[in-house]
Design a protein around this nucleic acid. Structure first.
Lengths: 208, 208
DNA sequence: TATATTTTGTTATTTTTTTAGCATATATGT
DNA sequence: ACATATATGCTAAAAAAATAACAAAATATA
């Protein structure tokens, strides 16, 4: 895209801004200043202005930011104005939870396929999508314009599946497996390491 | 605990060190230098040494780090040498996934209770634990020495439940709800905002 | 319409985090 | 036992991130 050197820290804050702006919009608020957003979100007004300015000037002096406009601009920055086709690999508890939880569909993330290596699950339907064999991943991804693969399988399978997905020119992998995937730079990997998160929590308890 | 000013960035890296050290240990490696760990983990050796030195000197010049020893020390730092009792509030797909996935038990996180507001689920058992009414949370937490509450419910419920949990002197909340909980400073909150994660991924696609 | 107030965008400063450099201690090899 | 190679812990430097400061622009008010 146009902007080049946006730090990960900034990107990581965007979804939270997006969430707050959405709530403001839903409650009918039309405009907000960085100062007011600051006290609402418990971050500095300066950081808010800096963050937004990484992507251009969305506000107006003396007025502040138009909530609806800013909300939509952030959506565009996050790529939420486009739809993405995704598959879930691993139809166990977590995979099913994500498939069913597809609140994501509202945001343009469309579930197109479900895969598992356990034949007992083949044909089982979730949200109208039948589970099929992991053998089919390669063809399916190529033929159905899949952008995102969600990996909810154990680590060995995740590593192997990632290799297949790379061959299929997948754009991004949402990785719930407890392993670091080694893929080319042009493929986006977003890790959700739940046990890491729980350990951070544990650290917090141990160190008040 | 003893150490005071450990940055969040350092803490966030500890689980990953722990994971790699565990794998090294399991494959029979006895010692490792920061340099070798560096190329394995793709972080600088300097950062590795700095990180560990926040908690004391675990290595030896000319030798490196003893894998088993370091692994155990990090476990202590993360509080994994103690057990924690936890409850899951919200027995929907995600709650069930986490309950069943309790690989966490190996690390000392013991599931003690399951709660939901849907009466249809009452009595349903997961890993030998029966789902009960959210009405019972307060008593249960007080009487069963619960440290951690996992919130896998929608945001409105999460906010209300958090208030109850604060009254019960819960130590930590693992929050999967899409909302920022407002609790006193002495209560640890670890957020897992899956949609934030998915948006970061989306950003990655949009900006290659 | 003029004046005071608000509030951004941007530059400057401070703080935090990461990386580099090196003296010192240990291990290894001859 | 001595010399050489390793590799930490720590200090110093560099880079990145967060915060503060403020001029310029727009709004609100009288």
């Amino acid at each position: 895209m146009d902007d080049k050197n946006i730090s990960q820290a900034v990107v990581a804050r965007l979804p939270r801004y997006y969430r707050y702006l959405g709530e403001l919009r839903d409650s009918g608020i039309e405009r907000i200043s960085s100062q007011d957003l600051s006290s609402l979100m418990k971050v500095t007004a300066s950081q808010i202005r800096q963050d937004f300015n990484n992507f251009g000037g969305f506000g107006q002096q003396g007025y502040g930011y138009n909530v609806e406009y800013l909300y939509n601009e952030i959506a565009k920055i996050l790529g939420l104005d486009k739809t993405h086709n995704l598959i879930i690999v691993g139809a166990g508890n977590l995979g099913q939870a994500l498939a069913n939880y597809m609140n994501f569909e509202r945001r343009g993330f469309l579930l197109k396929g479900l895969f598992d290596k356990n034949p007992a699950l083949y044909g089982k339907e979730l949200r109208g999508i039948a589970v099929q064999s992991v053998e089919n991943i390669e063809c399916f991804v190529r033929e159905n314009d899949i952008d995102i693969a969600v990996l909810t399988i154990p680590k060995d399978g995740a590593v192997k599946t990632a290799e297949i997905l790379v061959r299929c020119n997948i754009k991004a992998i949402w990785n719930f497996a407890h392993v670091d995937l080694n893929v080319p730079d042009n493929i986006v990997v977003e890790n959700v390491h739940l046990s890491d998160s729980l350990m951070k929590l544990s650290y917090g308890i141990a160190n008040q």
